[in-house]
């Protein structure tokens, strides 16, 4: 088991926000966390990434307790958060610089991935010169360079228009299988969760809890073939029902 969360509880000023969260992400697995806004998804991610320490519970990576310890799990926050004052390559190389590499080798290492992430030729530009889709790919590459181990993505595609989103999904599926990253991603878009993930956790209630879990079997179908299949619709209606209660 790559990432494991055990009975995590957190409250803000006495009000419990999330309660008894248990979840796991396996090696190379893509798991979605699906739930309405305000249910506590970002709160949970802040704990998993080590930015916040939970009131109780544990976070384990490869069985090692890392509760409240930042720097191990890579995390892409809800906004893309590219720094406008750094060039694209310096933005992407930042996690390596933070880890103590010198600027030149960090840049070289970052540049090695530019082609794969569709960013060739953008290294000396500033983020304000990139399109929405490119910004997101740059942020994803930065997140990847941060740690190849486990990646948390908080609504990585929610700011994009429908067409760019579809293109990015297709690209993302290819890359994530090539890189074999264990990924936990937040979304409130059911189609997105079904398209991208191997497994889906549903989070509902106040305080937020994990109330259901759906494993997606694609039976060899992928892309459009899966999205137009009866299985897809069956999963979708099951999730809609689960989120309503």
């Amino acid at each position: 088991m790559k990432l494991q969360a055990c009975r995590i509880c957190q409250s803000y000023r006495g009000t419990p926000v999330i309660q008894d969260i248990d979840l796991e992400v396996d090696e190379g697995e893509v798991v979605s966390l699906l739930g309405p806004s305000g249910v506590g998804k970002t709160t949970l991610f802040n704990i998993l990434s080590g930015i916040d320490t939970p009131d109780s519970g544990q976070v384990l990576v490869d069985g090692e307790d890392i509760t409240g310890r930042a720097g191990r799990i890579s995390y892409m926050l809800q906004k893309d958060l590219l720094f406008e004052y750094k060039t694209v390559v310096d933005n992407i190389a930042l996690p390596l610089v933070i880890k103590g590499e010198n600027k030149v080798t960090a840049r070289e290492k970052a540049l090695e991935h530019f082609e794969q992430f569709g960013l060739l030729g953008t290294d000396k530009l500033f983020p304000s010169q990139l399109s929405g889709g490119m910004r997101q790919r740059a942020a994803l590459l930065r997140t990847y360079l941060f740690s190849h181990d486990v990646t948390l993505l908080d609504e990585p595609f929610s700011s994009l228009d429908a067409i760019t989103k579809r293109q990015l999904h297709k690209w993302y599926l290819e890359i994530i299988h090539a890189l074999q990253m264990a990924t936990l991603l937040i979304t409130h878009d059911i189609d997105e969760a079904l398209r991208l993930s191997d497994r889906i956790y549903l989070m509902t209630g106040k305080p937020g809890r994990i109330t259901d879990q759906v494993t997606i079997e694609r039976n060899g179908k992928s892309g459009e073939a899966f999205e137009t299949s009866p299985e897809f619709l069956a999963y979708k209606s099951r999730i809609i029902k689960a989120l309503q209660c």
Binding site: I51, G71, P95, K99
Partner: peptide, 18 residues
Amino acid sequence: ADRDAIHLLHAMGANRWQ
């Protein structure tokens, strides 16, 4: 300075000086 930007660097394991 944006709070979330600081969070991001914190998550990367940055210290105060970084």
